[in-house]
């Protein structure tokens, strides 16, 4: 149990996907202008990460390893994740419309996100068990949500500040991101 908790904290805070591993930077800057769309994006990312981890763990352990073709895992994972997300999107759209509106367009957009592919490859490299990889994915998603929520909260306020004209928009967001990264480096070493 404490093992799982360690994995969760490690993924969410210490080895945060965005600020420490530098994965998923495009949504970090692209969708962090508004808190509502940032939350919707991170909900979709978390969901897809967990689903993709489960699917790729099964494929890796029951197909790739028995046939000795682990070296093809990147190609396989891309294929698996893309088709999985397509099917999930179709299901949600037709069965639960409120949920579909929460995820919005982001669910389909993140099929090829590096954070999603990243978590599956990390799970494989660390040789996590099924439960462990699910917890790792959930932790990574929670960390992603946390950083995106903090960032969009800051950026919403930055819009109103009197920053120099040349710094408005992305430049000031980059500077904010570095400070946020420094702050998160304070978690280093707690697990």
């Amino acid at each position: 149990m404490s093992e799982l908790f360690t994995i969760f904290i490690s993924m969410a805070l210490v080895n945060n996907f965005i600020l420490v591993r530098f994965l998923g930077l495009c949504p970090f800057f692209g969708v962090s202008k508004k808190l509502s769309s940032a939350l919707s994006m991170s909900a979709a990312v978390t969901f897809v990460m967990v689903a993709a981890s489960a699917a790729t763990w099964l494929v890796n352990n029951y197909i790739l390893i028995p046939f000795g073709v682990e070296y093809m895992n990147i190609v396989m994972y891309i294929l698996i994740i893309a088709s999985l997300v397509q099917i999930i999107e179709l299901f949600i759209r037709r069965t639960n419309y409120a949920l579909y509106n929460v995820f919005g367009i982001y669910l389909a957009l993140i099929t090829t996100n590096c954070a999603v592919l990243g978590i599956t490859l990390i799970n494989t490299n660390e040789a996590f068990s099924f439960i462990e990889s699910l917890v790792a994915a959930l932790g990574a998603g929670v960390g992603f949500t946390l950083v995106l929520a903090i960032m969009s909260g800051i950026r919403e306020r930055l819009e109103l500040t009197d920053s120099p004209r040349a710094m408005k928009g992305l430049p000031i967001a980059f500077i904010t991101a570095t400070m946020l990264g420094l702050a998160f480096s304070g978690f280093g070493g707690i697990v």
């Binding site: 494929v59 046939f67 093809m72 190609v75 294929l79 698996i80 999985l84 179709l90 299901f91």
Partner: peptide
């Protein structure tokens, strides 16, 4: 193996599109 998995996922998407009720 690659081809089978690709074909399989394509088939599943096709079936899901045809069978999942609105």
């Amino acid at each position: 193996i690659l081809g089978a998995i690709g074909l399989g996922s394509g088939l599943i998407i096709y079936l899901a599109n045809a069978k999942v009720p609105h």
